[in-house]
Design a protein around this nucleic acid. Sequence first.
DNA 1: TTTAATTTTTAGGTAAATCTAAAAATTTGT
DNA 2: ACAAATTTTTAGATTTACCTAAAAATTAAA
Lengths: 219, 219
Amino acid sequence: MTLSEENYLKAVYNLQKHYKKGVPTNAIAEEMATKASSVSDMIKRLAEKKLLFYKKYQGAKLSESGEAHAIKVIRKHRLWETFLVEKLNFSWDEVHDIAEQLEHIESEKLIKELDKLLGYPKVDPHGDPIPDEQGNVIAVEKRLLSEFNKGEQGICVGVNDSSSSFLQYLDKHQISLGKIIVVKDKEEFDGSMQLQVSEKQFSISQLAANNIYLKSLKE
Amino acid sequence: MTLSEENYLKAVYNLQKHYKKGVPTNAIAEEMATKASSVSDMIKRLAEKKLLFYKKYQGAKLSESGEAHAIKVIRKHRLWETFLVEKLNFSWDEVHDIAEQLEHIESEKLIKELDKLLGYPKVDPHGDPIPDEQGNVIAVEKRLLSEFNKGEQGICVGVNDSSSSFLQYLDKHQISLGKIIVVKDKEEFDGSMQLQVSEKQFSISQLAANNIYLKSLKE
DNA sequence: TTTAATTTTTAGGTAAATCTAAAAATTTGT
DNA sequence: ACAAATTTTTAGATTTACCTAAAAATTAAA
């Protein structure tokens, strides 16, 4: 399995949540920052290798083995991210690109031992679940901050956007995993919200609120 | 710099010790387990990039930047090997292939922090020196076991062959870094040696003795 | 030193992964 | 439903890193 093939599997895996019938060529092209024609070629190859199902113009759907492989890559990615933060003093906005490289390293023992060293973590530094060795992914119950209403509160358990610019924006407002966020007010017309985090109040746009996951808290 | 280019630089670096004028195409081909024609192509490309000097039929010699880059890759390789042994419970015969993959990961901070995590080690699990951040390689004073005479003794400080079969052979005889080895006898006709290691005596072939480095000890 | 053996290079080809441009299929809008 | 817009695929090129086979240069040997 080549590096490029693994990246395509990961892209299809991530997009499958939003496309129930089959992931469109263009969606994959956008996710991979490449051209639709390149995707067409690669998807055809992956279908020949039985890693996904594909009928012309119908989009792609991972096969069981394709999904298993995608999950393995994601497990590696998230374990490496955790390692970088927990053991090498990286912050959550610095780890993505490096994990993107490390996730392709091949060694069963390496990843098993890394998991052990880290104490078998359940989530990565962005709150995303780390698949276990059997490929089970345990999703935490969570809602988008943008869906919360005035007066509600929750604990930050994840983000939807792991770009360093967004994560640095969160840092600036002291939003991190485990923080309690209270919705003090919500604007009808633009979806912006007035929040309280660690005694401080400030407002964030709907776009930002759309990329933060909270676990509901009874007040 | 591609993965393949880095591997060529490393090969030329390692071979330069044995070929003062220039490393022959065939030597590189053997080291890389590839064909001379492929080497010819690649060497030409690396010369265009000023990473090495090359005149037709004259072999290859690393430029300053080529050597600097090769040393960086070797630094990464040896730090990763140390990490695998020190932190992830690998034995010295299991680390080479994985480090071969990890050495190509690009991140200054990653390697800096890894170095720190490991306590700035001076040698890797095979006794090879780990180049520092500035690219200085401090070689330990050492001699091949095969050059020792009857009655001499030394401390094992390195190996010349990091293949798992050789390292497992050493394990079987309890030879590891730091062990004291005494030459009890030496055969003239085949160079084989009778050794004493940790109270036990046994004999090894000249081939084996040619792959073990000792630091001389006054008895 | 002239031939033979070896080494190295060149020429031409393949496979992976990409691209652009054009053709084909599908979806949408009126 | 049919033309227009969009999406997807195909066709043809490019680059990297290999390969085989043949030609050229160097080295060794008689």
